[in-house]
């Protein structure tokens, strides 16, 4: 799943009947620091997200499973409205990596 910002709405009257009555929103994918991460995409809304809201979405087959009754032909679905994203904190480089480069990671 990925974070995203709702940047617009998409209306399509002529469409596959399984998509009737579904709301489509234009989403700009973001990373945890809310930086742009990929091109905007159209996602079906399942949580009444509004313009400008920070959301998270799921893609591929799991998007179709977010809808009742599935199986609706969508590959991106907004499944949550985000209240808070924990910022990155400087973490000591865990000694997990036995040949860890000095100063690598974040």
């Amino acid at each position: 799943m990925n974070l995203g910002r709702v940047i617009g709405t998409v209306v399509a009257t002529q469409k596959y009947e399984g998509l009737q009555g579904k709301k489509f929103l234009l989403v700009q994918p973001l990373d945890h620091a809310l930086r742009v991460a990929g091109d905007p995409l159209v996602a079906v809304d399942t949580v009444q997200a509004g313009k400008g809201e920070l959301i998270y979405f799921v893609n591929s087959r799991e998007a179709a499973l977010a809808l009742e009754p599935f199986f609706v032909p969508v590959d991106a679905a907004i499944v949550g409205i985000v209240d808070d994203v924990a910022p990155e904190t400087a973490q000591p480089l865990a000694d997990v990596f036995s040949s860890a480069k000095t100063g690598g990671a974040l």
């Binding site: 949580v47 998270y56 977010a66 949550g80 985000v82 209240d83 808070d84 994203v85 990155e88």
Partner: peptide, 19 residues
Amino acid sequence: GPVVATAKHKAYAGRKLLS
């Protein structure tokens, strides 16, 4: 770190979401 969302699909209820 954690990502908090109260309004969400029911499958995510009670589940911790991390970035």
